[in-house]
Amino acid sequence: MTLGECIYIVDDNEMTSQSLAFFCESLGYETKVWNDPEEFLETYPTLDKIGCIVLDVRMPKKNGLEVFAELKEQKNKLPVIFLTGHGEVRMAVHALKDGAFDFLLKSPEEKELIDVIERALRLSSDLKFKDDQMAYDQKRFDSLTEREKDVVVLVGKGMMNKNIADVLQISEKTVQQHRGSACRKLNLINAVEIADFLRKLKGNQR
C-alpha cells in the first residue's frame, strides 16, 4: 500500500457501497463513496490521488457503462473495476474490451477483491510515475533555448556537427556550444541518448 491511495466507490446501493468502503478501510485504504453517478462525474475532475474506481454496472440514473464512457472522454487514467450481477457479465466483458481494468461478480470473495484492488492500485501507481516522468522530460526540453532545440533535434536525427552548422547557417563551434549546453540541461551525454530522449518525448505527445 502506498501513501495517498484512494478507492473511489460508485454504487447507488448505499448498503453495498458502505460495506465495501468499510472492508477497504479495514485494509488501510482511504475510500470515497458516491451513491449518485452524476455527482461522481461532477466531482471526478477534482480527484487528486492515485487509486482505482469501483463502479457498479446497474444504476438507475446512469449505468456503469455510461459512466465509464464519460470517464474515457475525460481521459481517465484511474483503473476501473466493475461490480456486476450474473446477468450483466456480458456487459462487463464488453467493458473490459473497451479498456476497463477488471470486473467482479457481486458479492466478491474477500481474497478476490483484495487481489483485484491491489493490482489496480499498482497499475495506478505505475501510470502516475510514468506521467510524472513525462512531465519532467517535457520540462527539461522546454528549458532549452530555441537554438538549442534546433541543434538537439538535428543531433537526434543522426547529423554531425558540421552538417548541423550548414543547415542552421552557424559555425561548427557555435553548434558545439549549443549542443554542450543542451546536454547539460537534459543530463544527456551523447547522440544515442539524445535520440532516445526525443523518441520518448515524441511518443508521450501523441
Results as ranks from 00 to 15, higher is better:
Lys173Thr: 11
Gly158Phe: 03
Arg184Glu: 10
Leu104Tyr: 02
Ile53Asp: 01
Leu55Ile: 02
Leu127Phe: 01
Glu25Phe: 13
Asp132Pro: 12
Ile53Lys: 05
Asp102Gln: 11
Ala195Tyr: 06
Asp98Trp: 00
Trp34Phe: 11
Glu70Arg: 04
Asp166Cys: 10
Thr16Pro: 05
Ile170Asp: 06
Pro108Lys: 03
Ala165Lys: 10
Val89Pro: 01
Lys200His: 05
Ser143Arg: 00
Leu27Pro: 14
Cys6Thr: 15
Phe103Pro: 07
Lys49Ala: 08
Gln74Glu: 03
Asn76Ile: 00
Ala120Arg: 02
Glu66Gln: 13
Lys62Gly: 06
Lys61Leu: 14
Leu198Val: 08
Thr84Asp: 04
Leu121Thr: 04
Lys97Ala: 04
Tyr29Lys: 08
Lys173Gln: 10
Leu71Asn: 02
Gln177Asp: 05
Asn13Arg: 08
Lys49Pro: 05
Asn63Ile: 11
Ser17Glu: 04
Arg122Ser: 06
Leu71Tyr: 01
Ile114Val: 15
Lys97Val: 01
Val80Phe: 03
Asn163Tyr: 08
Lys139Ala: 15
Lys75Met: 08
Arg90Val: 09
Met134Gln: 11
Lys185Glu: 06
Arg58Ser: 08
Asp166Ser: 15
Asp126Ala: 11
Glu172Asp: 12
Val152Lys: 09
Cys52Gly: 12
Phe101Arg: 14
Arg184Gln: 10
